[in-house]
Structures are given as structure tokens and as C-alpha cells.
Nucleic acid binder design. Structure first.
Lengths: 106, 106
DNA sequence: ATAATACGTATCCATTCGTTTACGTATTAT
DNA sequence: ATAATACGTAAACGAATGGATACGTATTAT
């Protein structure tokens, strides 16, 4: 039975811990692939594939400089995550509020 | 070769679109499994498995009432996602700012 | 007591994922 | 011209994922 169409959202991009680490690193500025590969002690092709996912989901962009390719953070799509999580904020704030008043009444 | 230790973070919980839909539904209040299964036109065991993932990652809690089990949203862990995404906010706000000034200067 | 309901779990299967090794290509250094 | 560098891609593989069907168990209805 064919599986439902795969998730092409940014949530898939950030599902993998290595990809999140790559994004965290890119917040400090663009980086070439080799630097990322050595930083995460994984093979270069592995990182390349992660970067491809990030690129296709438009969370990073690629720019060629000679034989290097600089990957740059493109955070616009990450806003979808922030927007999705926003309505939940009320809930955990309410929970914290409940805990606070609970503690105060003890 | 064994894969690196699997991601047990809340990011895995929200990686799947069905699980996100379940969470969205639970924001309106606790629900039994059958209601969720019919809402998403998937088999009940499939939903049960998703709920198990959500339960293990502490994004929902389960409570037995007779033969029903009510699943309730536990949003505390989702705060990790909000915290993770927070530093990126500056970036996309900067991008929007650049776009704004770009448009204003044309 | 028996039947129906609400659920979890076991098993199985196809697909996807993350990783590695091997290879090809473009660019720079000698 | 040749060698070295920086990278992407192909192929292969085991592990994990998402789903379905079949089954077992506890609870409620008759």
C-alpha cells in the first residue's frame, strides 16, 4: 500500500538533530560543506545530503565561490514553525500560572 | 553500521503531520482515541501508535475513564521548540526589515 | 452470562531515512 | 599539463517509520 505523500514541510527539515545543529551553526554565518562535515564528525556526503534537504525546503541557500559552496541560513521558512507553535504558548503559560498559584497557596 | 542514537526529542513528535493534527485537535480539549481515528480517516491502531509516540515524548497524557482513554495536551515539552526557534526570530525579522527598506527605497 | 465497545499490542510490509564507500566534475595550485 | 581540492551524486545497506490486519483484554450493556 502506498504511503501518504511525504511531509515536505519545514518540520521535516528540523526533525533531524544533525540538521538542527547545522542550522544552529549557520546562525553565526555562512559556511562551506567541509567545515560543517568536520564540525559534526560525519562524512562529507552525509552532510551534503542534509544540506540538500535543507536547501529543497528553503531553509538554507547555496552560493558558489570558486570551488567552495557557501551555505547560508534562510530563516523565513522557520517562521512557519514559530507560527504553528504560537497557539500552544497560552497553554504552557497557563500551566506555569497554575503551578505558581499552587505553590503560593501551600 | 548502526545509526546514531535516535532522536527522542519533541522535534520527532511534531515531525509527522498526523501527530501535529492530533495536537491541534487536542488544543480544543481532551479526546478519546476513536474520535481522533475517525477525524483523520486512519485506522485506530495507527492513531494509537502516534499517541504512543506523543505520550512517550510527554506531549500528551493519558487518563482512563471506564473503557475510554482520554488523551490530553501536555504542552510543556513544546516549549523546547519555541525556545529553540527563538534565536532565529531575529534573523527573519531582519530579513523582513531589509525587504521593507528595500521597498521603501524604490 | 453473553454480546458489544474501546482500546492496546503483535506482526507484517512497503517506504523512507541516515550513513558509508566509490566515483565524477569543476576549480585552483604547481 | 598534472595534481590537489571541494564538492555533488550514485549505489548499497541496515534501521526506523507509518500503516494495515489480526488478536487479546478490560469494561459496559443486555
Amino acid at each position: 500500500m502506498p504511503q501518504a505523500d511525504p511531509d515536505r514541510s519545514v518540520f521535516r527539515a528540523i526533525a533531524d538533530p544533525t540538521r538542527r545543529a547545522i542550522l544552529d551553526r549557520l546562525r553565526q554565518g555562512p559556511a562551506p560543506v567541509n567545515e560543517l562535515a568536520s564540525a559534526f564528525s560525519q562524512s562529507r556526503p552525509a552532510i551534503s545530503k542534509h544540506l540538500r534537504v535543507l536547501r529543497e525546503l528553503r531553509v538554507v541557500s547555496e552560493q558558489k565561490y570558486g570551488r567552495e559552496r557557501l551555505y547560508r541560513l534562510e530563516p523565513a521558512e522557520l517562521k512557519d514553525v514559530a507560527d504553528w507553535i504560537l497557539p500552544y504558548r497560552d497553554f504552557w503559560q497557563a500551566s506555569l500560572g497554575n503551578l505558581k498559584s499552587y505553590l503560593e497557596n501551600e
